[in-house]
Amino acid sequence: MARAVLDPPAAPAGAAPSATVRVPARPRPARRPARRRVRPEASARTLVSAATLSRRKGKVVYWTVFSFVVLIFAAVFLFPMFWAVTGGMRSQQDLGQNSPTFLPQRWLPGNYRTAWDQLQLGHYFLNTVLQAGGGWLFELTLLTLAAFALSRMRPRFGYLITGAILASLMLPLYALVVPEYLVASHLPVVHSSLLDNPAGIWLPAVANAFNFLILKRFFDQIPQEMMEAAEIDGAGALRRLWSIVLPLARPVLAVVSIIAFVALWQNFLWPLLIYSGNTDAAPISVALVALSDDTRQNILLAASVLASFPTILVFLIFQRHITAAATSLGAA
């Protein structure tokens, strides 16, 4: 199966086939999918009842537990990040100390500049943008076309194709990496190689059965009357895709885009193989590891922090969509 789906440990996103991203009853601007900021937690009944919490003892226990949990979360998840970000601003001796100060002895924000220049991060970022961006474009376009055709045009034997794509869900992500590499290094019939070529990232990205399924399920739910109405107005299949299906599908396209892009950006094993002969053209994940041995620790830390920026940024911008994606996975 496609390298690009997700890095193996992240595979719980594989719950995708059970994703149910619903079609709104009528088309509406996809900009604001029901923003429930009205503290839903206030009303929902959970393990502990509101009555218990409103008692004096309940309040004391709640706030004690609450502060404790906040502290644990900060210590477990945020502190390591803080340590890495400030570690990137320490000097090399400072890093080697066995009893370091909480903050750097001397702040060296210039390390980040050095990391950017010395490791040519800009160059590797561009590589990654080209590979992940192209992979995303190919995956989204080709999967949307195929899912639309199989869902709404229903050609003869289409169910066989859908079945075959479903069956590829059975193939584990990485167990096939060697035969896939052999295919990429020597394409049958055309006898060319995709090694050291962004197409070696783009084309396998399309073979993503999970994302195909999310799209097809969504298209399946679009009411038939809408399609028929458009057809009476003289809209052909492509016109129906463009003016009815795609506007409706904006939220689901967003979810698939984020899943696909983040997975492609984070991918490691597949680009490691595709660019094994030429690290210079590799994406940033591969380059970081390749350069890590010859780089000072503080510079490497700064580079690592910089390398995480794009995905963290995507997350913070599209947080609502990402939570929605996870939510729809759980609502099986």
């Binding site: 080709l142 055709a149 199989l150 590829s168 052999l182 299949a237």
Partner: peptide, 20 residues
Amino acid sequence: LAYLLIAPAVLCFALFSWYP
């Protein structure tokens, strides 16, 4: 037309999933 729309994706599945 439907086959035409499906073909590119199916080719990718064939090359990088079914055949391997």
